[in-house]
Design a protein around this nucleic acid. Structure first.
Lengths: 340, 340
DNA sequence: CTGAAAGCGCTAACAC
DNA sequence: GTGTTAGCGCTTTCAG
């Protein structure tokens, strides 16, 4: 393989000069630069960034760990990360954990070994023990979308789940709903327990009772949403409205409702945390909380890179909370005076 | 940073022994291995795969270049790639080109510099000139989903676009449609010109004329699909059916149709290449060609890794064509005897 | 079963 | 403006 030495010999200069040319450092005579460039071209030389990273102890690569590459929320976020990283000359290694803690663990280890410069993590473990290696090695870390319980000395960029859920439920209550089912993903993931918190907050504020049988935890998937909706709607005293805990869950809810021969919003109302991309474009009828996923990716990446390059004046860890947007459409029916 | 030397010192052995332990090589006395393991644990040592890759000239990493990370087709494919790669102990660097040739060029260069072991490419250039560096360096390459014109000595794993489009159009013709509009993405991308080929084939077989005003090229996006549908339906003699060239285009078509106050299939029929995930689950009404995206990822990755590890008996380049599936639903209306 | 020496390709730090 | 030296952390080869 052609190395910097081959180029040096060809150009009749020292390897160091070649290095300078490659890296666009100043202090090389134009004619010398020309000679080197010509040699590079002639030999078809491609710099070895492995070697470079090795000596510089800097890979110019960040790792992005998400829990579901199939989810538009995360891919939109990933685009924000990618665009920003590329703009600052960083590469991104995208890792998909499929919500499996073991995969997250493996990726964290792999990334640490690869000596990436920093990590963006949407954790599917929700536990800090997974991060042992990262802390040990002092790898810059920014949590994204999901925070980790009991971990406060780490940067976080996330949505306001409590407030978003609160808005959604308040809207339902204002329209007369009293029994509202909520279908969530994993109990240990912050997005979900925070959304539950917002749900409870809205109910309590309206002096409505919190009925545990209306609260369902499962997986953040279509199938789980489907199954739990069936459970809710087969109760003796079913809810008049359902809150889908994320986009995929809401899809499952919709399928279940259709399968039961019911109509939204005539028979049952539905609100969702996270918009359902395609649906909202073709049939914009679902009332949702929409989060700025792309911006979330951009902001987290900017923060991470500032940390990596130590350009951040503020040393304290930051928690950046992005405001969600309530989009009212037509999936909620107004209920007339229902006994409470 | 802790190195293999620190561990060696701590354990009272040579670096070489530590290396053997880390890599699970046999020929180390169990007690020695224990000592080393203990030292690793104590010092919190994480092997540096940068250094390892550097000497081994092998990164155990492959690059996956796709044109739209937002498209479920590609993310599903990416999952297939990822799962397979991880199973064989390879990491994946996912690169999103946004259909921009410049980005593809940059990524190719970055990946070559990073000395990744192989590349999976869904090209958005459609030109082989972009691949100069790759060929020069003899980096194993597998084209995925899209082939490149005039490039025959490279492995390809793709769907049968001609046949898929043919099936879709034949179905329309059989149901009485004579004027069928087709909305495609870029002209220079194989998926699209092949789908056009299938379209023409079906028409010719039925002795129907090919009307160029019914053939629209644009971008593989919702907005482009929308715009071109408007053009088609505002023609003096509009088509009775539209063929959406990919999932995103078809979404645009649907929006345009709705915006014109028309109904599918009553006023206009629609078929799509690629299913529209969410829609098909919630409202399964669109007749589509569905491709095995996940399998495509799996197969391409297996092929690539076999090439990398040179385990492939067959030296000739392969073109693997995956069969698409026609899913007939309710977006096509049967037309009674229309004059041809 | 274990170790010593050399080198992978590059750059920082210092000479000239 | 340019070159020399040394070393980043690891593994291969060969000796013991």
């Amino acid at each position: 393989m052609t190395t910097i030495y081959d180029v040096a010999k060809e150009a009749g200069v020292s390897p160091m000069t070649v290095s300078r040319v490659i890296n666009g450092k100043r202090g090389v005579k134009p004619e010398t630069r020309e000679k080197v460039l010509k040699a590079i071209e002639k030999l078809g030389y491609t710099p070895n960034s492995l070697a470079r990273s090795f000596v510089l102890q800097k890979t110019h690569t960040i790792g992005l760990i998400i829990s579901d590459i199939t989810n538009p929320f995360f891919t939109t976020l990933a685009r924000g990360v990618e665009d920003t990283a590329m703009g600052k000359n960083y590469s991104v290694i995208l890792c998909n954990t499929d919500e499996k803690p073991e995969k997250e663990q493996i990726y964290l280890e792999v990334l640490a070994r690869k000596r990436i410069d920093g990590i963006l993590l949407a954790s599917s473990t929700g536990k800090k023990s997974t991060l042992k290696t990262i802390f040990l090695r002092n790898i810059p870390l920014v949590l994204i979308d999901r925070k980790i319980e009991g971990l406060d000395n780490v940067d976080v960029v996330k949505g306001d789940n409590v407030f978003g859920a609160y808005l959604l439920i308040k809207n339902l209550i204002d329209l007369g709903h009293r029994r509202i089912g909520i279908i969530l993903g994993y109990k240990h993931i912050s997005t979900f327990y925070e959304r539950l918190e917002g749900y409870k907050k809205a109910l309590m504020e309206a002096n409505l009772p919190i009925d545990d049988t209306l609260i369902k935890f499962g997986k953040p998937s279509k199938d789980s949403g489907f199954k739990l909706t069936m459970e809710l709607l087969n109760m003796p005293n079913p809810p008049t409205a359902i809150f889908g805990g994320n986009n995929f869950i809401s899809i499952g809810v919709m399928i279940a409702i259709r399968e039961l021969g019911l109509k939204i919003p005539d028979d049952i109302s539905l609100v969702s945390f996270d918009d359902i991309e395609v649906m909202s474009q073709v049939y914009p009828f679902l009332t949702v909380i929409s989060q700025p996923a792309y911006s979330m990716g951009v902001i987290a990446t900017e923060l991470l890179i500032r940390r990596i390059e130590d350009k951040d004046k503020i040393k304290e860890k930051r928690e950046i909370i992005l405001k969600p947007e309530l989009i009212i459409r037509e999936s909620v029916r107004e209920l007339k005076m229902v006994e409470s």
